[in-house]
């Protein structure tokens, strides 16, 4: 379905890569010999994001992201860089949650508000005023991306704005799950703390098959957490497709 989005070049990269990191890393000060593992992602889908919603995602083929459908899928585009603990209220502020993602017009509007809750210290905005889509198809973040309220509107708004993938050090559980369940964005994990080394506006290529992220602007390459055994659910194309495949729910009458 959404498999073959054409490689549309990203708009000009003229805007200066200027971004501050107002959110400092978390002080993980354990008084106790804690064994809490900051564990990595162990598998990710190789498939393209899948439309969970009737019209919207399919209608996003004019999106600035680009990816192909097979195991060698790559994303290419300019990135938008944020810091640690980006919560869902910064991704999509609560006042816009009256918008229902399954309504195509409201889906598009959600996209136009994506990441608008970031503080004004983010001088370069993710979606320019008056625009519907973002020119940044890849979001790069720090630790605990998508924490806070469980609103599925968060990955939806990113997807609606044209984001193909988020690359972060780690994710909050519900955001990660919602990203997979909706297929709106790929929640990828980086091995290094690349949010410190990439700047908003850098040109990025992500090669899923090789678990590799290339920053063409700086010439550096980074390893992503290995894509392990892709879960059968994602393989099937999301929770509904999986359930149909296994006979848990009846096939939809066409």
């Amino acid at each position: 379905m959404a498999a073959s989005l054409s490689i549309s070049p990203n708009p000009s990269f003229t805007s200066p890569p200027k971004i501050s990191h107002p959110l400092s890393p978390l002080p993980h000060s354990f008084k106790f010999p804690a064994t809490t593992p900051q564990t990595p992602i162990n598998s990710l889908s190789l498939r393209p994001p899948r439309a969970s919603f009737a019209a919207p995602r399919a209608a996003v083929s004019q999106s600035s992201s680009s990816f192909s459908s097979d195991a060698t899928a790559t994303f290419h585009g300019v990135c938008y860089v944020v810091g640690d603990n980006i919560d869902t209220d910064q991704i999509i502020p609560a006042e816009y949650l009256t918008l229902v993602p399954s309504n195509p017009a409201e889906y598009e509007k959600l996209g136009s508000y994506a990441l608008c809750g970031l503080p004004s210290t983010y001088a370069t905005r993710f979606v320019e005023p008056g625009e519907i889509k973002s020119k940044y198809s890849i979001v790069i973040g720090g630790a605990n991306f998508g924490c806070g309220s469980s609103r599925e509107h968060a990955p939806v708004s990113l997807g609606a704005a044209g984001t193909a993938a988020v690359v972060a050090e780690s994710y909050a559980r519900i955001f990660f799950r919602n990203s997979v369940a909706t297929g709106e964005v790929y929640p990828l994990e980086s091995e290094a703390r690349i949010c410190e080394e990439c700047r908003t506006g850098d040109v990025i290529t992500i090669e899923l098959g090789k678990s590799r992220l290339i920053n063409h602007t700086t010439g550096k390459e980074y390893k992503l957490k290995p894509i392990g055994d892709a879960g059968p659910v994602i393989e099937a194309g999301g929770i509904f497709a999986y359930a149909r495949k296994t006979g848990m729910i009846p096939s939809r009458s066409a």
């Binding site: 593992p37 990595p40 162990n42 879960g231």
Partner: peptide, 19 residues
């Protein structure tokens, strides 16, 4: 049959080692 490790960034092998 139902393995869905993709839904979680926690790595079993690491958990075991650490524990």
């Amino acid at each position: 049959e139902l393995s869905l490790s993709a839904l979680s960034p926690s790595s079993p092998s690491i958990s075991v080692q650490r524990c």
